[in-house]
Simulated assay, not measured.
Amino acid sequence: MKEDLKVLYFVNDYKHHVVKNFYYFGVGLQNVCDCRVWNNPANIHDVIEKLNFTPDFIFFHDYKGSPLITELNSINTPI
């Protein structure tokens, strides 16, 4: 059962890599909450508009394992 928590997960596309733990983490998140995964560099406002989704929380895989997202300082969503 999905909870009401909305999570935006930024991670590079690992679904075709040998080690897929980051991909499976995103799949697992989608099983327990309303989670959207974004894989491309972009402006945060464009991402939210394209997904038609306002997250409660933003999660980055890590510095090197996530796409470059700009304008993060202009939103009030916890990261």
Rank of each mutant, 00 (worst) to 15 (best):
K50N: 13
T54L: 11
F60V: 15
N40V: 01
K15F: 10
H61F: 11
L68G: 01
N12K: 15
F59E: 01
D56E: 14
K64R: 09
N31S: 13
T77G: 12
L8W: 10
V47M: 09
H17T: 11
F59R: 10
Y24P: 04
F10Y: 05
E71N: 15
N31M: 04
K64T: 09
P41H: 01
N73P: 03
N76P: 00
R36A: 12
K20V: 13
C33L: 04
D4H: 15
V47F: 03
S74P: 06
F22Q: 04
E3R: 10
I58G: 02
T70Y: 04
D46T: 00
V18G: 06
P55S: 07
F25R: 04
H45G: 05
N39L: 07
F25Y: 07
H16Y: 03
V11M: 06
C35P: 14
H17A: 12
P67Y: 00
F57R: 14
N43E: 01
D62N: 15
P55T: 08
Y63E: 09
P55K: 03
I79Y: 02
V37G: 04
S74I: 02
C35G: 11
V19P: 13
N52E: 14
L68D: 10
I75D: 01
I79D: 01
L8K: 00
S66F: 08
V19Q: 13
P55A: 04
V19Y: 02
L51A: 05
F22H: 03
Y14M: 05
S74H: 05
L5N: 13
L8A: 13
N76H: 02
M1E: 14
T77E: 04
Y63F: 11
E3D: 13
K15H: 13
G65E: 07
Y9N: 09
M1D: 06
H17P: 04
